[in-house]
């Protein structure tokens, strides 16, 4: 499939207007292109202007200056009615409607196309069935919204956006408040939808790890810094992520391409061994402020014995002081021999 540039953003300033019509800029000089067939994730801390950007791009909110072009036509030149056929949204607003069935909610996505009473044609119905199938919600179609989990609800809202048949779908933090499997499921679903339907899917999220593993493209929006755009890997190579979270207790691990928490270390200890146990011991000790490494020279040292049952042997100046079989006990020993 040919990659198609759907959104072109030039020198955009976003923000709010005060009562006296003077602008209060949240972010300026935003430049970028959003492509069809790609899942693009917007990352950034709270207050960086992610929601404001999404609202501005959806036409919910007037922009301060600059240009937004959708398929070569300015956003402002579309009427609200037309926009409902170009942009579908999934918002953070929670739909608390009692006795609204999944099918009824998804069918409302067809309302830009249906007539005065909202009667569904057979074409509408087959589009709704397809969307329910794609999101895996076909078996839920007669359930009421109030009986769904947060993850299922989110899939229903995505199905609603799908039946709108728009080239663009914007999602504001679709993975917030979900459990980890649901987060992964939603992200993979959106990635697959972007691939299969050629739609532009653009979402804001705080789930960095997931975004870096699943997104085709990242928009990195930091307070103060310029907006960075690229594939997760390109941004890693240019070291943008490590700058992004400087001093926040998080660092970007260039080996794994993922984020990890920085633990402050107060002690050092020698550890020898290898394998999964070795990695886990170092991780557990690091969390407890102890830097463990084979290169460290210390009186206290830890050996990993793998004959039969796994044993962690603690030496003090070559004298065995303790043998333990799990990490919890090992940590207790380390605390006692401080």
């Amino acid at each position: 499939m040919m990659r198609q540039a759907i959104y072109n953003i030039k020198n955009l300033s976003i923000g709010y207007f005060n009562k006296d019509k003077s602008p209060r800029t949240v972010r300026s000089s935003i430049n970028g292109t959003l492509w069809g067939g790609e899942l693009t994730c917007l990352l950034g801390p709270n207050g960086a202007g992610k929601s404001t950007l999404l609202r501005s791009l959806s036409g919910f909110q007037p922009t301060i200056s600059g240009e937004i072009e959708i398929l070569g036509k300015k956003l402002g030149d579309y009427t609200e009615k037309e926009l409902s056929r170009y942009i579908g949204v999934v918002l953070t607003d929670k739909c608390e409607v009692r006795n609204l069935s999944v099918y009824e909610l998804v069918s409302m996505g067809r309302s830009p196309y249906t007539g005065f009473w909202g009667k569904l044609s057979s074409n509408d119905k087959s589009i709704i069935e397809d969307a329910l199938k794609m999101t895996g919600m076909l078996n839920f179609k007669h359930r009421f919204l109030q009986d769904l989990s947060d993850g299922e609800r989110q899939k229903v809202m995505i199905a609603k956006a799908l039946v709108q048949e728009t080239p663009v779908i914007f999602l504001d933090e679709p993975t917030a408040f979900l459990d980890l499997p649901s987060k992964v499921e939603i992200m993979q679903l959106l990635h697959r939808l972007a691939r299969e339907t050629g739609k532009l899917i653009f979402l804001s999220t705080h789930d960095l790890d997931l975004a870096l593993q699943i997104a085709d493209r990242i928009w990195l929006m930091d307070k103060g810094n310029e907006l960075m755009i690229g594939t997760p890997e390109d941004l890693s190579l240019k070291d943008h992520f490590s700058r992004f979270f400087k001093n926040d207790g998080i660092c970007f691990d260039n080996k794994t391409g993922l984020f990890k928490v920085i633990n402050k270390h107060y002690r050092e200890v020698h550890v020898s061994g290898h394998g999964f146990e070795y990695t886990l011991i170092r991780k557990a000790l690091s969390r407890n402020g102890i830097y463990a490494h084979p290169k460290v020279k210390s009186d206290l040292r830890i050996d990993i014995l793998k004959e039969g049952d796994i044993q962690f042997v603690v030496f003090n100046k070559d004298e065995v002081i303790e043998k333990v079989t799990n990490i919890d006990d090992l940590l207790t020993v380390m605390r006692n021999y401080n």
């Binding site: 919910f60 926009l83 409902s84 607003d93």
Partner: peptide, 12 residues
């Protein structure tokens, strides 16, 4: 019923 933002996005 869906809320003002969803309703507007659906062309209302």
């Amino acid at each position: 019923q869906l809320g003002d933002n969803y309703a507007r996005n659906l062309g209302l």
